[in-house]
Simulated assay, not measured.
Amino acid sequence: MTSVKKFQVTFDCAEPERLARFWCEVLGYIVPPPPEGFATWDDYKHSQPPEQRDSSFACTDPSGVGPRLFFQRVPEGRAAKNRVHLDVRVGTGLVGEERLAALEAECARLVPLGAVHVQTLLADDDNESCIPMRDIEGNEFCID
């Protein structure tokens, strides 16, 4: 029998720290402490050669259960639809109007952080409601 592997989710982006801090707010994640020997992330950043500064950043689930999120700067912008996206699970176990209200409340919390509400997909015979959104760099995610 194979064992379950730990994994991280990596985002290519323009501004790694800014996007990491956005996702910390969305998911309740935290920025880990700076590397040993540095009092702050700014101290660490200033120790790096200029071309490496702000090239990556990460955030983690404070409970240790969820995957680490890693953000790496790339020169090109997002060119097409994501092939993979995150589903932020705020409506688990809820149905109908109660589920929709929870999704809409989370959407209302995220929009002031810079998220973009794409549309609200209402429940049908096969699927419950969900809200597709975009993060501050245009990456798609869903509130479901």
Rank of each mutant, 00 (worst) to 15 (best):
P50R: 08
D42Q: 14
E97S: 14
T60H: 09
G93C: 11
P112F: 02
E104D: 13
F22S: 04
V116F: 00
A79K: 13
R68G: 00
P67S: 10
F57T: 01
V74S: 09
P16F: 01
L27A: 02
A102H: 09
E140S: 09
T2Y: 06
S47Y: 10
A123E: 15
E97G: 01
M133T: 01
R109M: 07
F71K: 00
R73H: 14
G93M: 11
L100M: 11
V116S: 08
A14G: 02
P132W: 11
H46N: 13
N127E: 09
L103S: 10
F22T: 08
P16C: 03
T120D: 07
A101R: 15
D54H: 10
M133V: 04
G28W: 01
G64W: 13
C59D: 03
E137P: 02
E140P: 00
G66W: 02
I30Y: 00
V4E: 11
T10A: 14
M133F: 05
D126A: 10
E98Y: 03
L122R: 15
A39G: 14
S3N: 13
P75W: 01
S47P: 04
C130T: 05
D126R: 10
G96I: 06
F71D: 01
F38R: 03
P33D: 11
E15D: 13
P112L: 04
F7W: 10
Q48K: 15
Q119M: 14
V95P: 00
E76T: 14
P34K: 02
R89G: 12
S63H: 11
N139Q: 12
R21K: 12
V74N: 08
D125S: 09
P67A: 07
R21L: 14
F141R: 04
E137V: 06
R53T: 09
A102C: 12
F22K: 03
L110E: 03
F38K: 03
V26P: 00
Q119D: 15
D54G: 13
D125P: 00
M133C: 11
F70L: 14
S63D: 14
E15W: 00
F70V: 08
S55H: 07
V26F: 09
A20C: 06
S55A: 15
R73D: 04
F22D: 02
P112I: 04
V88L: 12
P75K: 05
V116Q: 10
A79G: 10
S47V: 10
